[in-house]
Design a protein around this nucleic acid. Structure first.
Length: 420
RNA sequence: GUGGCCGUAGCUCAACUGGCAGAGCACCAGGUUGUGGUCCUGGGGGUUGGGGGUUCAAGUCCCCUCGGUCACCCCA
């Protein structure tokens, strides 16, 4: 049993859950198209430096969560722990062939070696978008609006959008100093493990759930009151745009982001239906500093990552109807060995005519075959036996009510496609 | 990576203070000769996550390990 189980933190997605996930993928493709995003794929692994440089050397991702390995040429490679840096890398490598701004989206897996729990996997699937090449607040609005639309269209209601700005190089350093000074003054109120953290990243104290941290954070200077002119205007424009777009949000001056390359806009969609530790359905923001860290020309960008495993989990928690399996229209049943080939010909005719059809192997009793037909959810069972072959007409049975009629073999595909 | 709780059939669970591993659902087959979803009858399924220990005897107690889960860290 253990040896057949998938590796820790990974899951086998099987029907019907796999089909629900497929529905999430398809909805993502459809919506991204509706918002004018273009599909991209980047490699599942990158040179390790791509993530080391962009995520920040002290970040959790780099220090303990990366799946890093050496290839046979001695290169250090890492399984993509987050998608934004690779997409930016790819953009910088090919920007002369791409439109500006470049609106990219992807549906792909990421890998992080953290301790797994429900909604927190080592291999997890994400729908993400990036608008690269424009600092305009409209881009931020577009990105946030699409994430909101995606979650709402899935039927989710119990979530909130938290929005903040974390400033930029013009105003964040001064704010950071002020915050550090403030925290130093109240250092003794924080426990050791939490108190030490602000040296690494003082902003982190603000969104900490620890009781003492929250008390200290409550009176801390707020970034939103220290933003430079440009950042303040940007934030105001994003908020105005969201209101115009009909997207409800909640200003949250305590929201910060973990990765170093974020600037200005930061946002999170948080589910109220899930345990706190896995409640972030979608996170994103602006990363105007990322391109330079990668060694490229200054290139602004904004995007989000939306956790599909968590969305599926949240849908289950909220009791929302999941995308279901698409059942076939017809299930062909062969009665007796003599009918197996006729049934085979018929099922292929149906498929050629565009009808989703299945046939049983014909090696089981009629009763069992009809049971199979029932379980596939097919609308019609097409019965082919010696009688039918003698008459040249198949028995088409409507599974919803058991009514049935004889249809000439060659007319069956047309008969069913006309009713499917 | 740190800590708590949990691990019995495919699923949900039962088995008094150690004493022969069970039920429901699901699955399969029958209920006469070609008709599913209801009903009745029967059947297959388990190294009680794995390994070691204590004991006459371990699903039950102890240790290790694997996995799940919750919290922390962090985030999707």
């Amino acid at each position: 049993m253990t040896e057949l189980a998938p590796p820790r933190g990974t899951i086998d997605l099987l029907p019907p859950r796999s089909e629900a996930m497929l529905g999430l993928y398809e909805a993502g493709h459809e919506l991204a198209h509706r918002y004018g995003f273009r599909y991209v794929e980047t490699p599942s692994f990158e040179h390790t430096e791509v993530f080391e440089r962009t995520s920040g050397g002290t970040s959790d991702i780099v220090t303990k969560e990366m799946y890093t390995f050496e290839d046979k040429g001695g290169r250090s490679l890492t399984l993509r722990p987050e998608p934004t840096a690779p997409v930016m890398r790819a953009y910088l490598a090919h920007r002369h062939d791409l439109p500006t701004p470049f609106k990219a989206y992807y549906v792909s897996a990421n890998w992080r070696h953290s301790r797994p729990q429900a909604g927190r996997l080592r291999e997890f699937r994400q729908l993400g978008v990036e608008v690269i090449g424009t600092p305009a607040p409209e881009a931020d609005v577009e990105v946030v609006a699409m994430a909101d639309r995606y979650l709402r269209d899935r039927g989710l209601r119990r979530f909130a959008l938290h929005l903040n700005s974390i400033g930029d190089e013009a105003c964040r350093p001064a704010y950071r100093e002020e915050l550090v000074a403030y925290l130093e003054g109240r250092r003794d109120e924080l426990s050791d493990e939490h108190g030490d953290r602000f040296r690494e990243n003082p902003l982190r104290v603000l969104d900490c759930r620890d009781e003492a941290c929250r008390r200290v954070a409550r009176d801390a200077p707020l970034i939103t009151e220290r933003l430079c002119e440009a950042c303040a205007e940007h934030l105001a424009a994003v908020q105005a745009g969201l209101r115009a777009a009909g997207v409800a949000f909640q200003p949250d001056p305590f929201l910060v982001r973990g990765l170093d390359y974020y600037t200005r806009t930061a946002f999170e969609f948080v589910s109220e239906a899930m345990p706190a530790a896995q409640s972030t359905l979608c996170g994103g923001g602006r990363y105007d500093g990322l391109a330079e860290v990668l060694g490229g020309a200054p290139t602004p960008g904004v995007g989000f990552g939306l956790g599909l495993d968590r969305v599926l989990y949240a849908m289950e928690e909220e009791g929302v109807e999941l995308p279901g399996p698409r059942s076939v229209d017809a299930f062909v049943v062969a009665v007796g060995d003599g009918a197996i080939l006729a049934a085979r010909g018929l099922v292929e005719d149906l498929r050629r005519a565009g009808v989703a059809a299945e046939a049983s192997a014909g090696d089981r009793p009629l009763k069992a075959q009809l049971r199979m037909a029932d379980r596939t959810g097919a609308r019609f069972a097409v019965i082919v036996g010696e009688r039918e072959m003698a008459e040249g007409r198949a028995t088409v049975r409507r599974l919803s009510d058991g009514s049935q009629e004889a249809v000439p073999m060659e007319d069956v595909p047309g008969w069913i496609s006309g009713r499917a």
